[in-house]
Design a protein around this nucleic acid. Structure first.
Lengths: 162, 162
DNA sequence: TGCGATTCGATCGTGAGCGATGTATTTCTT
DNA sequence: AAGAAATACATCGCTCACGATCGAATCGCA
């Protein structure tokens, strides 16, 4: 609970430290916030041909890796719950990319399966990861470091609220 | 337009490289996506006492730094436009934290000013940056590196679409 | 001076996200 | 075996985000 943070010097003169304090604490949040938006923009552009949104694409990516996932499993991968996923999956169903069917083994569970149309969409999406990597424009070292740091932060933050 | 990316070896055997390819390109996006969500969670928790949402808090932070900003200026800082900001600012106005008034110099412009209530809210929010920094839990070096990398990515991505 | 172009913000429709709550189906307990 | 607890998904209400479009004010240039 003690504040053993990066700046070992307590802010004594507020006027002097005001800006630094606020930016120190908030800078990362602004960065995450705006970078997240920038990614949304990028994906919107890349995905417009496919008719998918960014979250829809993430769901499809999971299904391309392993078809017939439970709603719950998709939610765990993406950090989403049924209140977000149910409408999203319904839209994917309306688009004709997936079907949702109750598991006969356990009627509480809904299985999400690709249609042939949904399956063939993966070919159109093949280049997207490379386009993203190009657009991000980091060399391998920074790319790895960034992914690692984000993963670390995400893990620590989600550990607090499980 | 050529793909001069991190992996100099072309994927010849798809089955062998499939997972690596997809994760290599998509890993960062999943990371940004889920980390962004984790931040939203954290802020929601920290801000519930103040009655603010995360974007509302960001706007207030800007106003605490400099009062009387134009809607446009707020939008530039946060990467948002009037279609998002107008309703958000109206909510802040309803909450009694800001007032919106047309600039008499230029009637197209709307100036956003803190109320006394909005001003005094900054004291309640004083600890939030430190709480966030604690929750993130990176040492100074990684903290700086992460902020820098995100800024770099964000700049590059938003340069593509200006 | 006057008219077209630009700027600023508001409005609308759609798709996320999420807290709270509801409902049906298991599973656990005794 | 019956009721309680847990699980999985759906629903509701609200906020945010954004593309498209509109209306009013201002600017720029002929």
């Amino acid at each position: 609970m003690t504040k053993d943070r990066k700046d070992p010097i307590e802010p004594i003169n507020k006027a002097q430290n005001e800006t630094q304090n606020e930016t120190l604490g908030d800078l990362l949040c602004f960065s995450v916030y705006s970078t997240s938006h920038a990614f949304n923009h990028l994906y919107r552009r890349l995905l417009s041909d496919l008719g998918l949104t960014y979250p829809q694409y993430l769901v499809m990516t999971l299904l391309w890796r392993r078809d017939g996932l439970k709603v719950k499993a998709i939610g765990q991968e993406l950090g989403l719950e049924s209140n977000t996923l149910t409408p999203l999956l319904k839209r994917l169903e309306t688009l004709g990319f997936v079907v949702r069917q109750r598991d006969t083994e356990d009627e509480r569970v809904v299985l999400v399966k690709l249609t042939s149309q949904g399956n063939s969409l993966s070919e159109k999406a093949r280049d997207i990861p490379n386009c993203v990597a190009d657009a991000v424009g980091l060399d391998q070292a920074d790319f790895t470091k960034l992914t690692q740091l984000l993963y670390s932060v995400r893990t620590r933050l989600s550990k607090d609220r499980t």
